[in-house]
């Protein structure tokens, strides 16, 4: 498989959220603002790429019985490395990411890609798959948060777009709105992209 194919399959055709229904928890919590989604997305891309790469490197040595623990340990380590690095060098961004660090570690996408791809493919391919899956995830998050932020706060990335005539939709500010938006997104994608037929 060509490298670009790996990327596009991971990001679009087998997108983690709308196709595999993984990584939903964070999709609800961080999509209230686009900035939060972007930061979370970047954190996921970084951790996912590196953990996929590492897990793939040692895949031939990992005994079956401790497979899950090894994967978990590697995933958690990379996330914390990202967190410590940010805290020390980019503290402002770290403050934004702070509450979400825990969410990245338990993000099912990381474990899911580790099991499904990294444990059976070469390191470079796994790295690309990780970047692809992370990018697909980030795109979905940005799409949902675009709607939520626009209708809930009248802003995009913090810039006021809708004037004071706009009444903020409280439901967009609350987490359950992400459920509905995600369902609509899945509906649209299933109908047009996958051409779901009866």
């Amino acid at each position: 498989m060509k490298k670009t194919e790996i990327f596009s399959i991971a990001a679009f055709k087998e997108n983690s959220i709308w196709r595999q229904i993984l990584g939903i928890c964070s999709a609800l919590a961080v999509t209230n603002l686009m900035m939060n989604s972007l930061i979370m997305g970047l954190g996921v891309i970084f951790s996912l790429a590196l953990s996929n790469f590492t897990i793939s490197l040692i895949r031939n040595w990992t005994p079956r019985s401790v497979r899950m623990m090894v994967q978990t340990l590697i995933i958690a380590s990379y996330v914390i490395i990202v967190d410590v690095f940010l805290k020390a060098n980019l503290p402002e961004i770290s403050k934004q990411l702070g509450p979400y660090v825990g969410l990245i570690i338990t993000n099912c996408i990381l474990m899911g890609r580790a099991e499904a791809f990294a444990s059976q493919n070469s390191p470079i391919d796994s790295l690309i798959d990780g970047i692809g899956a992370g990018t697909g995830y980030t795109l979905v998050l940005l799409m949902i948060s675009f709607v939520r932020e626009l209708f809930g706060f009248g802003t995009i990335f913090g810039f006021k777009v809708l004037g004071s005539w706009w009444t903020n939709w409280s439901i967009m500010v609350m987490a359950p709105s992400a459920f509905f938006l995600l369902a609509i997104l899945i509906w649209i994608i299933n109908t047009h992209y996958y051409k779901a037929k009866v």
Binding site: M174, A175, P176, F179, L182, A183, I186, N190, T191, K197
Partner: peptide, 23 residues
């Protein structure tokens, strides 16, 4: 349920309504 919404889609909507109730 419309084809595109079957499975995950409708589950999300149901859950969203339940979540609103729990708010």
């Amino acid at each position: 349920v419309p084809i595109g919404l079957q499975g995950a889609g409708i589950s999300l909507i149901i859950t969203g309504i339940m979540a609103l109730g729990f708010v």
